[in-house]
Amino acid sequence: MITAGVDIGSITAKAAVIVDGEVKGTRVDFTGYNAEQAGRRVLDELLKELGMDAQSIDRVVSTGYGRNSVKFADKAITEIICHGTGAHFLNPQVRSIIDVGGQDSKAMVVDSEGRVRDFAMNDKCAAGTGRFLEVMARALEVDLGDFGAKSLKSERPSKISSICTVFAESEVISLISKGEKRENIIAGIHDSVASRISALAKRIGVGEPLMMTGGVAKNMGVVKALENRLKMSIEVLESAQVNGAIGAAVMAARL
């Protein structure tokens, strides 16, 4: 059976194709203005890469904030279930998942079958999300991709006390004007994000083995800060950003 998962996030669109229980390929694109088109495009491009055509796909499940815009999907399933399913598919031992994307962060606890037992999401506030990091990267004039490596060089992380993105940005700007080192500011930003996420993760009682997924998992600075806060080790796979799409493709096979 050939299935596909399409995950339309607030910043990026992801696709995954699974053939007979094996991930054949994945792809990440920007979502842009039109969620439906983004879904179509990212899947088409992936199929082109894999030398497959759309007709060969048996079923598609969409997920993410744009899940209901993907009209060609057979079913829309929330990213909470898809991330749980994806993580369990890639490592059946996993019992907790922290997923941090562009506009929200969430923690999930799954059972031995990968079924979500409980979840918590950030409140309606950008703190603790990828968007928060993007705003800070712009203020610091640092490429977001370099954030992780830079923060690991920090000797003395700055203290960012405000949880509001706008106020935190002014804190960052005032630290810049005081001549504080970029590394320290970035490490402070990561700790601020980690404190938000760890609070909601603790609320539902996450435990090991713990996996982190979503785009922000690519940032080793956030992962380390979270490990320190939670006093747990966190597994991050290469496929962290496309985990939701993989989970959607797995769900598609079960429809």
Binding site: T78, I80, M121
Partner: peptide, 16 residues
């Protein structure tokens, strides 16, 4: 945001 939480909550109950 509310819709995603409700959908996920109901998917969880259904799975259970």
């Amino acid at each position: 945001q509310t819709e995603t939480r409700i959908d996920a909550f109901m998917e969880m109950i259904r799975q259970k």
